[in-house]
């Protein structure tokens, strides 16, 4: 694991994996969308509205997955001072926030015809909203300091504090009587959802995960490039460019 803390090795890995992640994401999302929008049955209770679920559920999974990834990156940054881990956490935050936002919006669009309201204050919805605020707080704290290293450390501590919320989101549907339905895919006695609906759901989940990896690799490489540019600028500011020196000599 620690060998990937070497930025050069990590960058080489991301460069190799990025096209694969992009390919898997595009194929799975295309197939998943086809299955979920056309080739799957409408629900006997929810009719066509059930198709929102194929966008909503993987987004909600990814919202939590991204937070755990961000917290893991923050932890390894705080413990071993791996710069790569910090950049992974930093790059994950906006992606995770977008997934959370997508889950909240699609859930609300589904809730209007099904529950008759855009929003209810039950435990699941409230805890996901807190998750969204945690993402926003992380990003705001990261950029709140003049010294970037200080922002990175403070935001990492915040990411770890927010981990408390993850089990609350997961188990909120079991601990409280929520309007939100309990888990139907990941459960001990096997999924309680019909294979014709499970296939597109899993395809979408794989597609979302690959999409996350794709964007994450892209963002981490951009961060490294930005850091390199900043270092070059500093060097340029410190030493006058060679061409000007030459012209002065001439």
């Amino acid at each position: 694991m620690h060998s990937f803390a070497n930025p050069t090795r990590f960058l080489r890995l991301t460069r190799a994996l990025q096209p694969w992640a992009a390919g898997v994401a595009l194929v799975c999302l295309a197939a998943g969308l086809y299955f979920s929008l056309f080739a799957s049955p409408a629900d006997y209770q929810q009719s066509e509205t059930v198709r929102i679920m194929y966008v909503h559920v993987p987004a909600a999974w990814m919202a939590m997955f991204c937070y755990v990834a961000m917290a893991a990156g923050s932890a390894s940054f705080l413990i071993w001072r791996h710069r790569v881990a910090d950049l992974v956490a930093k790059a994950t935050a906006p992606i995770g926030a977008s997934f959370t936002f997508l889950a909240l919006v699609t859930g609300s669009l589904w809730g209007k015809p099904m529950w008759g309201t855009w929003w209810v204050w039950d435990a699941r919805l409230t805890s996901v909203l807190i998750l969204f605020f945690l993402y926003l707080g992380y990003m705001a704290l990261y950029n709140a300091f003049d010294d970037q290293a200080r922002g990175a450390r403070a935001a990492s501590v915040l990411a770890l504090v927010g981990v408390v919320n993850v089990p609350i989101i997961k188990f909120s549907v079991d601990w409280w009587n929520t309007l939100h339905q309990p888990a139907s895919v990941v459960r001990l006695d096997g999924p309680s959802i019909h294979p014709s609906m499970l296939t597109p759901l899993l395809l979408m989940a794989v597609g979302y995960t690959a999409f996350y990896a794709w964007v994450l690799f892209l963002r981490v490489r951009t961060e490294f490039a930005a850091e390199k540019i900043r270092a070059l600028r500093f060097r340029q500011a410190a030493v006058p460019p060679a061409r000007e020196l030459k012209s002065q000599e001439g």
């Binding site: 409230t126 909203l129 807190i130 605020f133 945690l134 926003l136 707080g137 705001a140 704290l141 709140a144 300091f145 003049d146 200080r150 403070a154 501590v157 915040l158 504090v161 927010g162």
Partner: peptide
Amino acid sequence: AIGAALTLGARRGGVLLSLLVLPLFI
């Protein structure tokens, strides 16, 4: 206290503090 310690020396620390801490107060 966590939020207060995290925002030490931050720009606009007070506003940031409420953004960080209020969700955790819920």
